[in-house]
């Protein structure tokens, strides 16, 4: 398993709340091969961002994180101490977030924000760190990078700020980049540019990319593999073309059907919406979390455990009625 950049088994994240324990991530298995892009897709509250934040170890202390296995870049990190995580962050794995306006500090120059981490972690001199920053800004397509190091974030547009965030994530030359909704706050034309940039960086630098999104259009354009998350678990996982061509989980099917496609969905027709809403995750959950919204649901769906199937190599679907859905 040396070509696995990330290999996680049974990740659980629970958060104590006033109403009881919120089991936000309920046993997630994830793996990403070196140089590949895995898209983690799901709707608000499904636990996709918490999964990512748990991987990089940035969850607050009160969140309880457990894993059966956690390996990154060939290292076994199952016993995750803060010191080991801190060492890994920025070097092996880096993360970019949704809104570059709130993640960049408005009172510090771009140069200062880019170099702070590597000067500490790699003990680079100011000069070396600046040279690295210029290299990375150039990489992400910021024109005239040397001159722009002394500028503040407000001097850049939204798309440029996201480029700067990407440059900042690349400063430690990570092997795995986690991007949490990196284009959601951007206009469509800028989104296209940022996705193209991520794609290009990935093939140039051999990065592995874990991209979290709710947008199946983004998934279709950039993913190698897709994991569909629902209520804290992976409902389905498949290579991108297989997932869109033949979705096997009723939830995946529902998601794909609910999106109007210009030229295909008849104008003004009723869209096949998924009825109901996501279940609450406070306390234990019995059986399949999707069964209340599922048209295939039967009595068996209330039973634990929900069986996982591998309908084809590289595919996984967790559903009591998998055979019936596939038929």
């Amino acid at each position: 398993m040396t070509d696995m950049m990330l290999d996680i088994k049974n990740l659980q994240v629970s958060i104590p709340t006033d109403r009881g324990t919120l089991n936000a991530v309920r046993g997630v298995d994830l793996s990403i091969s070196a140089g590949k892009t895995l898209c983690l897709v799901g709707e608000s509250g499904c636990g996709k961002s918490l999964t990512a934040t748990a991987i990089i170890g940035l969850l607050p202390r009160y969140a309880k994180v457990t894993t059966e296995r956690f390996a990154m870049a060939g290292q076994d990190l199952t016993a995750r101490t803060e010191a080991r995580l801190a060492k890994m962050r920025g070097r092996d794995v880096a993360m970019i977030f949704q809104d570059p306006t709130s993640t960049l500090n408005p009172t510090l120059t771009i140069g200062r924000q880019l170099t702070e981490g590597v000067m500490r972690a790699e003990r680079l001199s100011r000069k070396e760190a600046d040279a690295r920053a210029i290299e990375m800004l150039d990489r992400v397509g910021i024109a005239n990078p040397a001159a722009r190091l002394v500028q503040y974030p407000h001097g850049f547009s939204g798309g440029q700020r996201q480029r700067i965030m990407i440059a900042s994530a690349l400063m430690g030359r990570p092997k795995l980049l986690i991007a949490d909704e990196p284009t959601t706050a951007l206009d469509v034309t800028i989104q296209a540019q940022i996705l193209a940039l991520l794609d290009e960086l990935q093939s140039d630098l051999g990065l592995s990319l874990l991209l979290i999104t709710h947008d199946l259009g983004v998934v279709a354009s950039i993913a190698d593999e897709v994991a569909v998350m629902y209520a804290g678990r992976i409902a389905e996982r498949a290579p991108v073309k297989d997932l869109f061509r033949a979705p096997q989980h009723p939830y995946t099917r529902g998601l794909l059907a609910a999106i109007p496609v210009p030229g295909q969905t008849p104008r003004g027709s009723e869209l096949p919406a998924i009825p109901g809403r996501v279940p609450g995750l406070v306390g234990p959950l019995k059986g399949c979390a999707f069964r209340d919204r599922c048209s295939f649901a039967g009595e068996i769906c209330g039973q634990d455990p929900v069986p996982g199937h591998a309908p084809a190599p590289g595919r996984f679907v967790e559903c009591h009625k998998a055979a019936e859905v596939a038929a």
């Binding site: 996705l195 259009g217 279709a220």
Partner: peptide
């Protein structure tokens, strides 16, 4: 045309969106 080209469809065969617009904001 640029807006339409940048719109992402839920279809992996279409690949990366075509960029018909300059980067200048």
């Amino acid at each position: 045309k640029a807006l339409l080209a940048a719109t992402l469809l839920p279809d992996p065969e279409t690949g990366m969106p075509e960029q018909l617009i300059g980067a200048a904001p």
